[in-house]
Design a binder for these strands. Sequence first.
RNA 1: CGGGGCGUAGCGUAGCCCGGUUCAUCGCGCCUGCUUUGGGAGCAGGAGGUCGUAGGUUCGAAUCCUACCGCCCCGACCA
Length: 562
Amino acid sequence: MKLSKSFVPTLKEVPNDAVVASHVYMLRSGMIRMLSAGIYSFLPLGYKVIKKISQIIREEMDFIGGQEFHLPGLNPREIWEESNRVEAFGETMFHIKNRDYILAPTHEEIMTFHARNVVKSYKELPQIWYQIQTKFRNEARPRSGVIRGRQFLMKDSYSFDATWEGLDKSYELHDKAYRRIFDRCDLKYFIVGASSGAMGGTGSEEFMVQSDAGEDTVAYCKSCGYAANVEVAKSRINSIKYDEKSSELKEIYTPNVKSIDELCEYLKINESQCAKSRVYIHNEKPILVLMSGNDEVNEVKLEKILGGAVRPAHTEELKEITGADAGSIGPIGFKGRIISDNQLINANNMYSGANKNDFHIGGIDFKRDVIEIEYFDLRVVKSGEECPNCSCKLEVFSAIELGHIFKLGTKYSNSMGANFLDESGKENPLIMGSYGIGVERVMACFIEQHHDENGIIWDKTLAPFQIHLIGLNMKKQEVVDATEKIYSDFKTNGIDVLFDDRVDAQAGFKFKDADLLGMPIQIIVGDKKLKENKVEIKIRKTNERIEVIIDELQSKVKDLIS
RNA sequence: CGGGGCGUAGCGUAGCCCGGUUCAUCGCGCCUGCUUUGGGAGCAGGAGGUCGUAGGUUCGAAUCCUACCGCCCCGACCA
């Protein structure tokens, strides 16, 4: 493809709206443009990458016996009423105003619709059906470019089995296919599994990529692969040790001391000697939650324990409930349920608020002084703590969800009446699985992981072109002749080349564009080297430069990209 | 949906606090001509704007006020 005739609008400056690297480079390299918040157009260069990713997905899906569909994005609302998901999706679902249609946010219902009354015998099972289609979700806050959009491309597949063992097998096949897909795309990913509780339920794995642009926070152990959403992650941590002697309770005057840090500073004590108090409201009743030092309360864990929604008490409520403002609240004299993090089991000689402004209490012995206390794991796991499985250090970071495989069971087949006849002639609901991959996310994550300060660094698998051919001074006939010859030779050899044949662009300008676009191999043709019958190869990734005799160029490049 | 920020040419911006002959600035990009061609060229000339939209205050509004729209960030939400 000749750059002089192509629509590749590169940008020299960083657009105002872009923050994360993948978004910046996708815009700057002329691969995407925004139409509206969370809605992007793919320009020719970007679409080439999407097609490459789709092709890899297609190959691996076909390999496990998947059959590709193409389903409508526009769906009658009544099908979605069958599974009660119009209500479940709520505001996230787009509704068409002048006809009773919705824009599909996923396709469980439609696949189930096609399966019911058609797939009727166990002899026809299992089936794996997939598609690569645009999904629509009315996201409250689209963000990070293509990573969270209101319209996005998803590979979604659905398995139908006659038995639960069959579902396990279909799930297993997807697990392997997903690993191959992401490996082929050269992504560094990890898997958050149901074993670590992220999704609950019987079987589900999320394929995640570490990224500051991510929306989930996960705890990950490099050594054993333990990975869990921080909402449920556990860590091994020693509880506070019990001193041999418990001292007496004593009230201490602590003017203007609010935070744990201030308390430690004022009393010259250690964080681990403090019990932090947070008041939550659950079922309209106050609950005091005690944490060690500066540990954060994990509200998801708390809700699981209490069995329902919680919210932190408002400032005004605190005074009413405890008689003190935040910063002076504590277990001694608190009227209501008191629960504490496991860290504080039977701790003694602790300091906490006195439920009286400007006072704290020291010498608290949880066993002696806080009789009806209950202990649970309530902490938010922190980086550097020990992995619950193997005792190595956990890392906590944000991550992007690339793919998700999920054992659905009979949720949709039951509600929509998709049944088959088993060997004994008995009618049973189809046992289903659903499996998704965010196609644009694969692209964005690749860029997040493969770029430098100059631009993208494509790998040959996903690169829109293998070669970026640069004619330095296209006003010199010898450069034109040489580059045109090289260009057509590559085309003859079936190698995809982007040819920067622009006449008026300066050398530096072309170099910068080439680094920005990031094709794996640059071939630089200038009149000086041409006199020696040579051109230069630059490897984008390593910055390595190789001089080659023109006659050897084709075979040299073949070696490099094989 | 809450909090914060922003909206001036294709992109990035100055001016806004303190309204008025600096009032529409500058850089990049674009067009024409000449020169230049190994890391984002030089000179000369040129095109491009309802200052997000609508009201209001005022003799006078990019500037002050109100509402709305759009975008970004944080949070809430996220089968």
